[in-house]
């Protein structure tokens, strides 16, 4: 038995070094990015067609798990590029001092906000939103409205999920000092709090809740991939908090040229036009008119909310305490 394992291990080790002649670009990203139906395989094929290199994706849970993984590896990490840290994580990521400036021209970005960060390069983004079935009557139009209603929602735990943390930030950005009251009011609307996005969205689809915390782009999946127009995102008057997913290159990369090429490649039209219908997010550098058919049906928030990376990092712990205190009763 142990021999089998050793043999397997050796085979794997040999097969991963056999291609050492071609340069290898190692990209760490979150798990759903590299799934067969995610953007990973298409991006890999397209990049390898031009780079004379071997692009190797490694999946590591979600954005937060990705950052934890990088911190564990530290300066010895063999990764060249980290793909998928959002703006709630980039401050902590920058503090590791493992990243170098991306060196890309950000003029082509089509984000609804101006982009300042020269370490992390956005590649896609979305607005957090509560998604519901169109049969839901009296859809809440704000957090106070939701808190007063008897609409049942399912959310994610900010301690184990990036959208869960996004919701904390959304309430902070929209209501600041009143966040405590908002959460106290929401407590009786919350059916349950799940470890991650998948479980929450699954519960919603099972009919366990009227609304689920997800993205304004979620209805596009149902419409485009399933031909199902019955899902919608509820526009909130306070505005919607953004999640911007970024790519960054590591200082210790042994392929800095390739890494930089890859970052530039992430903003090309070919990659950007793959993202909407594989990652189901808005591309970061594609004009609105180039979005796939169906995206025009999505809501556009009246107001865009986003903390800069430093503010997000500073408000995270107090916001978590408010959340815990309000919901632990």
């Amino acid at each position: 038995m142990r021999h089998t394992i050793l043999a397997t291990a050796l085979t794997l080790a040999v097969s991963s070094t056999a291609t050492a002649a071609t340069p290898v670009l190692s990209v760490y990203t979150y798990d759903s990015f590299v799934a067969d139906w995610g953007p990973g395989p298409q991006i890999e094929a397209m990049f390898e067609a031009t780079c004379a290199c071997d692009l190797q994706f490694t999946g590591a849970g979600d954005g937060a798990a990705l950052l934890a993984r990088l911190r564990l590896e530290g300066a010895r990490s063999t990764a060249d590029v980290i793909l998928g840290l959002d703006t709630n994580l980039t401050y902590a990521a920058a503090e590791t001092a493992l990243f170098v400036p991306h060196g890309q021209d950000t003029a082509a970005l089509t984000l609804p906000i101006a982009w300042q960060d020269d370490l992390f390069l956005p590649f896609d983004w979305g607005y957090f939103a509560f998604v519901h079935d169109t049969s839901l009557l009296a859809v809440p139009t704000s957090f106070p409205d939701l808190a007063e209603s008897d609409v049942r929602i399912v959310i994610q735990d900010p301690r184990s999920s990036t959208p869960g943390l996004g919701l904390l930030m959304w309430v902070e950005a929209a209501h600041g000092d009143a966040a405590t009251d908002i959460w106290a009011g929401l407590a009786d609307n919350i059916v349950t709090v799940t470890p991650g996005w998948s479980e929450a969205y699954g519960l919603f689809l099972e009919g366990e809740a009227d609304m689920v915390l997800s993205y304004t782009t979620s209805p596009a999946y149902h419409l485009i991939a399933e031909g199902d127009p019955t899902k919608a995102a509820a526009p909130f008057k306070e505005g919607h908090y953004m999640q911007i997913e970024t790519a960054g290159m590591l200082a210790n990369s042994d392929q800095p040229e390739l890494a930089r090429d890859f970052l530039a490649f992430m903003l090309t039209k070919s990659v950007q036009s793959v993202l909407p219908t594989t990652n189901w997010m808005y591309p970061a550098a594609l004009p609105e008119t180039a979005l796939p058919e169906g995206f025009e049906t999505l809501i556009t928030p009246g107001k865009v909310l986003l903390f800069d990376a430093e503010t997000a990092a500073a408000r995270r712990d107090p916001a978590l305490n408010i959340w815990l205190n309000a919901l632990s009763r």
């Binding site: 184990s160 407590a187 349950t192």
Partner: peptide
């Protein structure tokens, strides 16, 4: 976590997370 209904149902494992 899923069936506990909220942070009241925090286990040691979640604290580790």
């Amino acid at each position: 976590l899923i069936l506990g209904g909220g942070p009241y149902a925090t286990t040691v494992e979640l604290a580790i997370y």
